[in-house]
Amino acid sequence: MALRMSGPSPRRSNNTLYVFLALTTIAFSSLLFSTRSFVIDVRDVGFSLFSGLRGTIHGVTSSVQKTILSIEELRRLKQEYDQLSKQLERYEQLARSAADIGQENINLKKQLDFSQNLVYKHIPAQIIGKDPDNLFSSFVIDKGIKEGIKKNMAVIAFQDGIQGLVGLVVQVGRHESMVMPVYDANSFVSARFAQSLYEGIVSGQGDVNSPLIMKYIKKRAKDEIQYGDRIVTSGLGGVYPKGIEIGRVSKIIFQEYETSLTVELESAIDFSRLEYVFVIEKSNTGADDE
């Protein structure tokens, strides 16, 4: 009896091809809808389903790590305690000076007929994971809907005595949230120079090691801006509260044929050392909305 030659029959190959076409069409359509902001946010539902798993694995691995490295953990906890105590002390000082400055600002604004200052509360959170895909730069924090986190809340951090902008909450699950950092290519922040007040838009380049870019700055700012100038959020757009430091100018790019100026800036936050963040909520949107 002759041996049957192995290999797919033509009919089976056709089935495979049809299934392949169907699957790619479905996936393509999904991608088309998702980039157009589809009406139903299926991602939130799916993200919530997996929100517990990550936290569980993080908890298990943290326990094992702490058991094995107990001595190192004790030393680290001591350092962390000191660091957090200092941060708390700084935060209390900031809150006191903010109250003083706020009062002064209120008086000035009454005289100039400005609208009321923004007031926001902090929700502390810890980074528990990063994006599993190397192409995307998001990270996950351990607070979600239950703790009061909402989409489009700004995220800041205290590092080396500086309150710096970290990013924006883009997806919220029951117990976790996903944050798009300020260096993401899809991150756009309305900003201004702290001293000269020239405005622009800060965006990332998708890579934590690449500098942030501030564009659409008026050309006449060229003579007034310097290396090392602080860039802060302008508060326009109502997404990020104003006055939060984004970074400092590291390079000024001026082309005669361009209609505006571009600068590169080093982020105020060192993301490689970032562990704890604060999600801030504005109590009102005031006059800083466009």
Binding site: T16, V19, F20, L23, T24, I26, A27, F28, S29, S30, L31, L32, F33, S34, T35, F38, V42, R43, G46, F47, L49, F50, R54, D131, P132, D133, L135, F136, S137, S138, V170, Q171, M178, M180, D184
Partner: peptide
């Protein structure tokens, strides 16, 4: 392979900042 890639890709999109369908495709 393709069905596994489709199913797992869709689920991976929930874990990532990727648009829905990116990893699936």
């Amino acid at each position: 392979g393709q069905i596994t890639g489709f199913a797992s890709g869709f689920l991976l999109d929930f874990l990532s900042l990727a648009p829905l369908g990116f990893n699936a495709l």
